[in-house]
Amino acid sequence: MFWVLAVLPGDPASRILGTQATPENVARLRQDLGIDRSIPVQYLDWVGGTLTGDLGTSYVTQEEIAPLITDRLKVTVPLAFFGMFLATAVAIPAGVFAASRHREAGDTAVSVLSQVGISIPAFWAGLLLTTYVAVKWGILPANGFPGWGESIPNSIKHLILPSVSLALVQGAILTRYVRSAVLQVMREDYIRTARAKGLTRQRALWRHGLRNAAIPVITILGLQLAALLAGTVVIENVFVLPGLGRMLVQAIERRDLLLVQSTTLIITTAILGVNLLVDLIYNLVDPRLRTR
């Protein structure tokens, strides 16, 4: 992350100063920012700071970055969580349903719907939802966020439409994976064995199929959560939510490189953390991995 930013061309100092940049100004700012030092030194400094919880101070607003980020996480984390929850809650039953009605009308309907869901940009869904559900029908708040301290139910209300927009696309993708995982599992020999034991097709699917189908689906869930975190960046901007993603885009607009760096660091860490979690869950679900 750091290296991407450091190695790529573009001098933050001249960016910040923009049209007022003179060589002297730039040099002074570079010194203030500490970016006149060699890159490895900067890197060590940054890593050292990060490990002690000190992410430094924003170039532009002069604010401490660490508390800024924790504050924003209070919006982004619940948003991602609700979005994932909704997506999973819809996708798993829909995918299993489609697979158990393979090539029947129900399957086709689910497939067409998920194809449409995949093709809709999440932010467009968000725009349409605000326009119709919030503005025209006035059912839910259109945008903004009151803050958890203000009112918890009201805060949740403000997260509903953003979560739905996130979940729409993710849910559609997940549905397709669940369907194909279940279809694949239903062709396995052990399902036939289960049926030979006297289980009906449906019971064989529920008792023997789902846990096996869960193995690939969990992997997808991990990647989905990563995609969802990236999606929050866009969605927070649609709904004007004071989350990490909105801060990130604003930081880019203001050329606040250190803030960009720290924010992406947090998001990347979260993604890596999710992947680690997925590996752990894997071990729980699949006994073959435990003894290997």
């Binding site: 020999d189 036939r192 064995t193 030979a196 023997h208 096996n212 193995i215 006994p287």
Partner: peptide, 15 residues
């Protein structure tokens, strides 16, 4: 009842 050809795949791997 039936005994299948492939004992490797005839049993549920996660049970």
């Amino acid at each position: 009842t039936m005994v299948f050809q492939e004992p490797m795949t005839a049993l549920n791997p996660v049970m």
